[in-house]
Design a protein around this nucleic acid. Structure first.
Lengths: 345, 345
DNA sequence: TTGAAAGCGCTACCAC
DNA sequence: GTGGTAGCGCTTTCAA
């Protein structure tokens, strides 16, 4: 009975059970096995039971690679995210992962840093046939266009696409900064400073412009601006720079993110011996956990991460189902968290 | 010349260029195209040039699904990680992503929370044919065994496998706690308290036992212990519990992670009006960024995340290349960061 | 060096 | 409801 084609047991590679193995063991066709694991396939309950039993015994699981290759759907979503060491992104990523898992999708993670070759990363995205992409990373217009060219749904997170090339969800920077500025104005502050982000950061610039714009509306045009890189240390440095500027110490400092706000608080209190908020008011943006810690109680705007993520995932899912879905931009308003880092009256 | 098989242009689905398309356009066989994108394949430089040129024009990229299906290698590594909202994991994840990318591997991310069905997640891992797995999440012995059964290399991060079932890298809890305890003893403290993690946390318990054990070695046996859940809020609550315990206020509080240490500091200073480190010394474990912030300057153990991750990735890569590589456990010593949250003399 | 041919494991479509 | 059959896009022999 032995055939020359039979590999000796000792050298046989360990191989996962395939639908053919299950079919043979259950005495059915391979198609039947396939239908067992499909959703709305027509199969007799009895047959189904039997096949599933055999499949379980053999530890059979459909091969996602083969499924993806033939069906054109991989149930994988690429998530592009920059600087995970930032306070805000880990929360976004955790939420994204949770929500995508809920919809039976997997996360192929690409975390970018300053040195990352974005085109090389996009190349990997193309090769892996992901069903869609959610990006919280900087993408050039050409890069965004490449998605459309390849018909891969793209949803941008906190960075609107110019020209409606992609869908997006974001937190309303203008509304947020208006709330913060109003809060500070109500407390009687008139001498402001802004701690901005790098000039190539979209959200950073948006928040900076929004704050300065709203201040200008209220007749406050002479606002000292210092740039940081969103980090704690850059917040500290910004505070020192403001303290030494010939304009004199501001009454209120508007930081475009929480982490720099925390750095500013520490520099003001620990290094400069200022009392907060008596000597100086400080506000941030994000609503990250540390902002709420008792040592800071930073007045800030809480981004509705959960709802934003929900929207991003829903929009992506819709575009995966319906290729034609037009670009859409959803703006969420953040909530003002009144901490004790800014004067109240 | 028209054939009945030709789909009309208007209804044709947008399709990625395949190696056949490139082959046809370049006037070579499909095999030649394949060899162009393989590493050590024999192909004439001239042919190669020509094919690559055509491929670029057509935007051709090898399909990772098909490659994985035929070659048995997907270049995907599953990363299992719990509670991304923790301070330490985002850093680990960022570093893992960076290092795996460097080795031309992709990260399939699975972020677990308390409600996650780990078996369902493992099921997805099996189906996606990943080349290996790095896990910083709780896995049962049976779950770890399942990897061996399926011949999928597994490296555990900060959680050794019982019985040498998997490779692992960890930070030496015992050595770390010894350093912390020695530091506190040198400052003259004799009344200690420990803020531990949940009893089902491996690292948490390891650190708790290490601290208590080393204290016992030094004749200090009566140590108040409070359990938290690694969160900031639980650190605050732990401090309040200690303050109200009939044993009286401890001189030194050992927290098994930084976040609880920070919570303890805030509760002690803000709520209880204690001065740190004059009234009480507090130490943590991890060496996360916030621990170094000027408001805290937490004395802690810095886990060498970079080296640990490097080791984890190297060990995984070796086991992917060589199936037989035996289990190995690499322990890294953390570095004591002397902050101002603990008395120095 | 090159091309032909045989799959990898599956879904989708077709008869029955 | 069920089984046969044709691919999905690629790597990998094996001859030429």
């Amino acid at each position: 009975m032995a055939t020359t084609k039979t590999a000796s047991a000792s050298t046989a590679r360990v191989r996962r059970a395939t639908s053919y193995d299950v079919a043979r063991a259950a005495g059915v066709s391979q198609s039947a096995v396939s239908r067992c694991f499909a959703s709305g396939a027509s199969i007799a309950p009895a047959t189904r039971e039997r096949i599933l039993k055999v499949a379980t015994e053999m530890g059979y699981r459909p091969n996602a690679l083969a499924q993806g290759l033939i069906s054109g759907r991989t149930n994988m979503v690429a998530v592009l995210i920059s600087t995970l060491t930032n306070l805000f992104y880990p929360e976004v990523l955790a939420e994204l992962s949770r929500q995508l898992t809920e919809r039976d999708m997997r996360v192929l993670l690409f975390s970018l840093n300053a040195e990352s070759d974005v085109d090389a990363i996009l190349d990997q995205v193309w090769r892996h046939s992901v069903d869609g992409v959610i990006s919280a990373a900087r993408l050039s217009d050409d890069q965004v266009k490449a998605f459309a060219g390849r018909h891969i749904p793209l949803v941008l997170y906190n960075r609107p696409a110019r020209g409606g090339l992609a869908a997006s969800v974001s937190c309303d920077s203008a509304a947020g900064e208006r709330q913060l500025v109003d809060h500070l104005l109500a407390a009687g502050h008139r001498r402001f400073a802004v701690v901005a982000g790098p000039s190539d950061s979209y959200v950073g610039e948006e928040r900076r412009r929004a704050a300065l714009g709203w201040l200008a509306e209220h007749g406050i045009a002479d606002v000292a601006t210092v740039r940081g890189d969103f980090s704690y240390a850059s917040g500290q440095m910004a505070m020192h720079a403001l303290a030494q500027s010939r304009g004199g110490m501001p009454e209120a400092v508007i930081c475009v993110n929480d982490l720099m706000g925390i750095g500013v608080i520490d520099a003001a209190r620990v290094d400069l011996g200022l009392s907060i908020p008596d000597d100086i008011s400080i506000v941030g943006f994000d609503g990250s956990d540390p902002a709420g810690w008792a040592s800071y109680e930073l007045t800030t705007i809480r981004q509705p991460v959960r709802r934003m993520t929900q929207a991003a995932v829903a929009m992506l899912a819709e575009r995966i189902e319906n290729e034609g879905t037009p670009a859409e931009h959803r703006l969420f308003e953040g909530e003002l968290l009144r901490g004790s880092s800014a004067r109240l009256t």
